[in-house]
Structures are given as structure tokens and as C-alpha cells.
Write a protein that binds this DNA or RNA. Sequence first.
DNA 1: TGTCAACACGAAAACGTTTTCGTGGTGGTC
DNA 2: GACCACCACGAAAACGTTTTCGTGTTGACA
Lengths: 340, 340
Amino acid sequence: MKKRLTLKLIAKELDVSISTVSKALRDSAEISEDTRQKIKAFAKLYNYKPNNIALSLKNRKSKTIGVIIPEIVHHYFTTVISGIEQVANEKGYHVIICTSNNSFDKEVINMEILANGSTDGFILSVAKETQQKGDYHHLTEVIEQGMPLVMFDRVIEEINCDKVIIDDTLGAKKAVQHLVNLGCKKIGLISTIDYVSVGKLRTQGYLEALSENNLELNESLILKVDDFDQSEEEISRFLSDKSMDAVFAVNEHFAIYAIKAFKEQGLDVPKDVSVIAFTDGELSKRFIPSLTTINQHGEEMGAQAARLLIKKLENDDSEDEPFETIIIETGLVERNSTKR
Amino acid sequence: MKKRLTLKLIAKELDVSISTVSKALRDSAEISEDTRQKIKAFAKLYNYKPNNIALSLKNRKSKTIGVIIPEIVHHYFTTVISGIEQVANEKGYHVIICTSNNSFDKEVINMEILANGSTDGFILSVAKETQQKGDYHHLTEVIEQGMPLVMFDRVIEEINCDKVIIDDTLGAKKAVQHLVNLGCKKIGLISTIDYVSVGKLRTQGYLEALSENNLELNESLILKVDDFDQSEEEISRFLSDKSMDAVFAVNEHFAIYAIKAFKEQGLDVPKDVSVIAFTDGELSKRFIPSLTTINQHGEEMGAQAARLLIKKLENDDSEDEPFETIIIETGLVERNSTKR
DNA sequence: TGTCAACACGAAAACGTTTTCGTGGTGGTC
DNA sequence: GACCACCACGAAAACGTTTTCGTGTTGACA
């Protein structure tokens, strides 16, 4: 096992001081051409690489970004990460990813650990549990310590920081409007219970679209799924005997369960009924029929979040700069689950 | 912006030495009950947390595991990560994830960066490009420096380290055997070109299963997809006029394209033809018909990899310990794309 | 020959810890 | 009162860097 080469070892080997080695490697003018060449050659030969930990300690910055997401086994989040990574790497940062598993405690612990020097700033989508609890002390603490924080997707309004969101309400409106444009009149909604902010916002978009088109609101056409694991049965029950001509689902899974349920009822999608979903993932593309969706542009979101964070990190007097909220535009992806 | 509290600040504030503070906080017997209480109270009040970077530098270990995967937007890898995280967190480690995007250069760079102190060891699935190139210097270097390395999924035989794999050959055999048991005689294979090791191994399993069942090998029933982006058309072309009664695809996507192609030919899956896939993901579960698959148990794989790595990390004379290769058992998940 | 600038390098502090060793003071014992 | 042990704490080194400042040597110039 080869020992890792350090400045000290090089210095001893070449019989100069540590400072000289350091300076030579950084091309300081203080060092004569001769010694510099000699030291650089030696370092290259034995493949010297500076120790990042020592650098972090010295510079008081780690050049890494901490990302905390509710779960990693989730296509949308991975696209966001992908976007973060691209921008971060471009600018010489790297990325630590931790998952909270939607647990408040794990979110807190992860943030504390990463905040103790490992990370210069955070990009975060809060855990469901955190949203329910309404306890944000870990976020405010981090901010007070001067660590920039960027929230994305599931953000918390009360917290003062940069944010990247999509306009869930508008996106939902677009979806419903699309259905209306296709001639649908009796449009159902499959959403989640309201403490999940996206569920709430998308529901709102649905309502707005209805009222803007002078369509009557019918509460019995709205389902708020509580338990994800039970959602398939819940949806199937909900859809029976409602004679809708369209359904807007706040995610792919609900949409697919809806299509299954319709099929079982002997209805054809999209001939008899149109289905549109929020969230554009692998499933939407490959399903038969492929799903018409509202695309959230995860990569773009991650990229913007990373840009915001790095901007704060590299700006010394960022203290005074106001916080930004970037809104990512959603897009309608037309496929085969809605009629033409 | 509150300054982060350090031992030095506490020491100054309480008018004792740094050493005293450190010892008090670590419950050293050297410190009198009185002072200890005082210091601990102060630290707690102002929420002191030791700086991880300084600890890493001091202890020469970071208590973090570096994970490098080809791509994160890939369900299977996220399940592996999930498994790694669980075990790692249990044992007090955290996890840095980097993606190579299947690029050799990015893999090398990421390893070098993480190896410079950020990480105590690696869990890695190599990039496609690395497999093609056959250049493994970055791996051997890391190993020579005494950093434990565990490879999973896409492993490289020549490299001497712990490994966690699934028995691709056996898994493929299981799949084909299942088809044979269902009475299928003319079984097609949709695989990838051979430098992707899993493609090769699964092809081998297919061949073995055929010969064990005394089924004749028909080269025209084997497709080796080269370009992922073109795979849909390639598969559709391949499947026309072959009159197979079953297909084994080495991943979900190929299986789904196959099903689509069959549908377009007016064939019903599973009535007219059975389809079975390697890799059990979201798609398999939700697709209609849902896919019969060979499950790779990603979480289990990640968990085992993490256990192996941590074992090496915590064992001082691990140098002498032989390397292990753990084989994760694949499982057959029977769903609706194969007849009963 | 004495002065001074330029040059090339080294010593040391700093980042925040932990740990070894040393030391001043107290109390007890003979 | 002298000696010793023990207690409670501090100084300093170490981890691997970077950087400021100091310093010895050289050469030019008057």
C-alpha cells in the first residue's frame, strides 16, 4: 500500500521546505525556474494530488453542494439531480446527495451533518413529514449560519431563501384547458390530500380552469387520495358510474390506475374518455396508450437551482442581495391518452 | 450571520484552554465535574457541533462512502443507492453519489476528486466506456492507496476487489426455463452487443437454457441491439415474420418495444406470445400487460456492497483478508406477459 | 568597501480538532 | 516541615494545506 504523497514528503525528499513545494506547485514567482521545474516534475512523476480535506479546512469552503431530497427512487428527482450535477460540475463543484425518506428526523440529521463543514450550501426539497409538522428550525439555523439554501419543488413559503418551483397551478390549468379545448365537459380530478402542497396547488389550477370556462364545479368528480398504497382501489371505486369524459391526474401513477379502471369498465382511452397527467416520466412515454402530460422539466429545475446557489456562494456580499424565486415553465406533451 | 462556534471560541468565552473544552465535551475523566458541566451547558446552549472537516483531517478518515454509478436517472441504480444508504447510515457513514454518465473521463475525474480525502472507500459500477476501453488505472491506483473498493453490477474481473453481482447467466436461464416450462419452443432473444458484460452473460444464459432443454439454437432468433435510440425500430423489424412463441428481453424497455411490435402485428401478449424481461422496475409493474420479470434485487445488492465496504473499512488488517464476491439471487416475478 | 535592492527560500501561523505530555497546586503522610 | 501523589488543567504537536513575513545571499552601484 503506497502512502499518499503530501507536501511534507515531497519537501523532505527534495530537501526544500514545505512552503517552497507549495509555492512551486502553484507557480509562484517567488520560486526560481530551476526548483520549480524540479518540484513539478517530481510531483507529476509520483502523481501528487492535494488533499481536499486539508484544503477545505484551510479555505473554509468545500466546493461541494449538499442536495437533500425526499426519495431517490423517483424518476423526477433523479432528473433534477442530473441537472444540478451538470451545472455544479461545470463550475467546479461537486454534489453530495442525501435522502430524507420523507422523514423529518432524517432530514434534520442529514442537514446537520452536512452543515458541519462538508458542504457550502444546500439544495433541498422538503420531506412530506416536515411539511406536515411545520417545524423548520433546521432550515432557519442553516440560513443563520450564512449557508445559502435553495429550495425546489416542495418549497416552504415562510422560509426566506432562493426558490425554484414550477407553477403548479398554471400547469394544472393548462392540462384542464387542454381537455376543455378537446371538447370535454365533465372533467374529473384525481389529486392528493391538501397538506402536500403540490396537490393543493394543482387542485386550485383545476378549479380555476373550470371556472374560467364556465364549467360547473362538481365535488363528486374530485378525489383526494390519502394512502398511496390503496390508491389503485380508491381510484377504481371513484371512477365507477361517474360518466366523465376526461380525467386530470396529478401524477403518472394515478393516471395509469385511472386508465386501467376505465378499461375494466369497458371504456376506451382516448376514444371514450381522455386522461391527462401531471409529471412526465418513463411511464408516460412507454405506457400504452402513451400519456399526454404536463412536463415539469426536472433537469432545468435542477440546473436553475444549482445556478442560484452557486451565484450566492461566489458572491461575497450576497447577504444584501434579495432572494429570487424562479418559476420553471411547464409544457404540454401531447400523446395518445387524449383524443385529437 | 452567526459565526459557527468552535472549541477555541468556547475556550475564550469560558476562560479555559482549548484542550479542556475538548476533553470536557468528550467526557474525559481528567476534567473536574464542575468545569465539565459548565462547558457542556455552554456548548449545548449555543448549539456547538464539531467541524467534520477538521475531524476528517485529524482522524484521516471521513466516514463517508463514495458511490459512482453510470447514471442516476435509472430506476435500478436508485434502488441500489437506497440499499447502500440504509446500511451506511445505520453504521454512521454517509454517502456521496457521483455519476459518470457512462463517460470514462468523468469516472476517472470523480474518483480522483473523491479519493483525495473526501471518501474512505468506493462503491462503483463502471461506465460503459470504461468497459470498452479496458483502461482501469484509476481503479488500481485507488486500491494501491489502500482505499477499499467494492464493485457491483457491472464488475471487472481483472480487478482484485470485493464484488457484488447477480448471476446474470443463471437469471437468464431461469427466465428462459420459465418460458420452456410454459411450453414455448421458439424463443427469441433481445440482447445488447457483447461488450456490455450483462448483455453477454444473459445471452449465455439463454444459450445454456436452450441446450439444456435440447432446443435447437437458431441465430436468426437473436437480436443484439447496438444503438439504444434506434432500438424500437430495430426490434420491430426483428420481430416481423419470425413466428416466435416467446421472447426473452434483457431489459424492460426492449420487452415493452417487443410487446408493442407484437400488438401491431395483431398478436396478443400473452395469449399468442409470451414475453419475459430481465430487470424489474416501475415500468414492469404498471405496464399493461404487467411484465413477468427477473428481479435483480437492487436494494439487497446495495446493502451487501455497503456491508462489504464497511467491513473492510473497520478492519485494520483487512490487507490480508481475501476478497469476496457475493452473488445476489435473482427471482422470478410472475405477472401477465407470460401465459399461465 | 559599504549600501541597497532583488531574489530565493524558510519559518510560522492559521483552519478546528484530538491527544500526549508536562506542570502547578493541593492535600496527606511521616 | 519535607516529600510525594494526585488532581485539574494547559501547552503543543499533529493532520495537510496556503500565505504572510522574515532573512540570508547575491550582485550592482557609488
